[in-house]
Design a protein around this nucleic acid. Sequence first.
DNA 1: GTATGCTTTCGGC
DNA 2: TTACGGCCGAAAGCATAC
Length: 365
Amino acid sequence: MPRVIGHLDLDYFYAQVEEVENPAIKTRPVLVCVFSGRTEDSGVVSTANYRAREAGVKSGMPITLAKRKLQGMDLVIVRMERSKYESVSERVMELVRTKVDVLEKTGIDEAFFDLTRSSNGDYKSASETAGLIRVSILEEEHLTCSVGLGRSKVVAKLGSDTAKPAGLMVVPPESTESFMGGMAVTKLYGVGPKTGKTLEELGIRSIADLAHADPATLERAFGRKTTAYLHAAANGIDDDQVKESQTPTQFSRIITLKNDTTDAEEVMAQLSDAEDDLRDKLISTNTSFRTLTAIAVLTDLSTKTRSKAFEVPVNNLSSVKGSALELFGQLSDTADREFRRVGIRVSDLEGNQDQSSISEFLRQS
DNA sequence: GTATGCTTTCGGC
DNA sequence: TTACGGCCGAAAGCATAC
């Protein structure tokens, strides 16, 4: 039986949540922004609605530039409030979970799902379920979304991409080649600028080009493993299963400094709130970590990191402050520019079976 | 040569 | 002309073991 895999993507998510909260702004360009606090408008656009995108605004764009692109228009700027979008996301995912076999949340606004069993491999039946999912998200949360259905994650993802905004793209297995073949290879998950450039140099531009490329040529350029993946992906094949979302692998907090510096003590002082926040996150999720990383974004926006692994899992972030200071010292020693932004990351996470600290945390807060 | 595991960088949203 | 966040997972890079 062919698999029926779906990919769900909530349209321009943060900005759409703001529109739902305040429908009067729907007809205007809306920017959900992160302000760094350095100067009045210092920061970037996190998400823009389609009215703003039409004017050339993209996510990650400096706010000042976005404002220029939209000058003369009746612009709405909203400060990003992540916890709000997280709650909406959770509710949407719960709703979808009741209608599919398996749901794998892959981001705050997207998820893969499996309908193979419930549709018995029938794409007509699966399309109806996908339609039902879209309608219920619209009815319950007033949000539009885009959905793709196909025989693998690769196809489903390309499907939702093609369908957006507010569409459904169903790609039955026999249509996979005609659906994907004409697309640029760079549309494939895992083909970024670097791989794309190398492929271009080999004369491979479309997914069909890649699907029919000589394996030996690809292996010389990318090695065995990547070639196997690329070849399969270009044919719309991947065995990657939809699995219930796994536990997180890392937590991090990053801030923009008041002023550029390389002074490790100053960095630690300014990171104090971020550190408290990360400590709370570890406590509330009852998680320990084995690796601590210091992150520095230099004035040219390049990123440098230094990390330290501990023999035994650490459950108290405060106990490794000294290590963090050392890591920032290492970064200062090697960096050729000042730091603009700094952060801390914990990874190699381990859940703790003992639940008592959760209740203790809740009681305290 | 290949697998494994760790650190650092990349890239999507 | 420049401008410029805060997350996350995955890829890339490197060393070691067999």
